[in-house]
């Protein structure tokens, strides 16, 4: 299997998750020919690839072209992480004036050429699998590679973080500690990582397919969170996802 790893606007954390598969990666290196992975190796062979892992979101005109090329030369495209699947934290620009940002951040903003939005890969090309998380979960990542190799469907359950949290035997932080947690509306995949460390889930896997934001907001309010806190919780990695954007808009309309 010829594998490629591509990077767009992102922090490289998900690619590091690939490198973090140390032991497994040795096995991967045997079964998989890593043809293109600039983050990890100097080898940069041209396509076609059997599987392309794509990290990061589309934020420049050049990227928008490059992703089309990747689709053409890849049998299977898997987006990895919140940036690639939802636009990432950089999608905050979608709700602000990007020029203001570049002027605030860069000494010479005139050299910055960027789009007004940060968009997920699936907004540009058809994607075969999306792996969520900031960063992705190592087990899910390996499973997608192994599944492609063996020609089976990857096991990516479509459920809430609560399901994993309960199976893991964690004590619910909302019920037992009064800590706000986004687990009930967040896609599973992390194994209930944060609640296992007595922290509320902050939604890095993004809203699940049936995220019910209104009752979630009510629960957060009952725990003492004000609307500003809730708005902030919904405007991180998945700020551009439909469910989060809709709930933020609803909160804003309520305020007015």
């Amino acid at each position: 299997m010829r594998l490629a790893v591509h990077k767009f606007a992102s922090c490289d954390g998900c690619q590091l998750s690939i490198l973090d598969c140390e032991d497994e990666l040795l096995a991967v290196a045997g079964a998989v020919d890593i043809a293109y992975f600039p983050e990890a190796s100097r080898r940069m062979e041209p396509g076609p690839y059997d599987v392309s892992l794509v990290e990061g979101s589309i934020t420049t005109a050049h990227d928008a072209e490059r992703i089309q090329q990747i689709r053409r030369e890849s049998k299977v495209v898997v987006t990895i992480g919140a940036c690639a699947t939802a636009g990432g934290i950089q999608a905050l620009r979608n709700y602000a004036d990007v020029e203001q940002f570049t002027r605030a951040v860069y000494a010479k903003p005139e050299f910055i050429s960027t789009l007004e939005t940060s968009t997920p890969i699936a907004a540009h090309i058809p994607v075969d699998y999306e792996l969520r998380g900031c960063p992705v979960d190592k087990r899910q990542l390996l499973d997608v590679l192994v599944a492609s190799l063996h020609g089976r469907r990857p096991a990516i359950p479509n459920e809430s973080v609560c399901a994993e949290c309960k199976r893991a035997g964690h004590v619910c932080v909302i019920v037992a500690h009064g800590t706000p947690c986004l687990g009930p509306v967040t896609h599973s995949g992390c194994g209930g990582l944060c609640p296992g460390y007595h922290r509320g889930c902050f939604g890095c896997f993004g809203p699940s397919s049936l995220a019910r934001m209104e009752p979630m907001t009510e629960v957060w309010r009952s725990l003492g969170a004000d609307d500003k806190t809730i708005d902030r919780a919904l405007s991180t990695f998945h700020v551009a996802s439909e469910a989060n954007a809709a709930e933020r808009a609803r909160l804003e309309a309520d305020d007015e």
Binding site: A27, P184, V185, P215
Partner: peptide, 30 residues
């Protein structure tokens, strides 16, 4: 439904709920 988050906690804590799903998992060595 307007109050329910659909999180599944009720079924998972219930001592009589029994539903399961089955996954096939493979490793690289088959």
């Amino acid at each position: 439904a307007s109050r329910c988050i659909g999180c599944a906690n009720c079924t998972l804590v219930c001592p009589t709920c029994f539903c399961t799903t089955v996954d096939d998992v493979t490793t690289l060595d088959g």
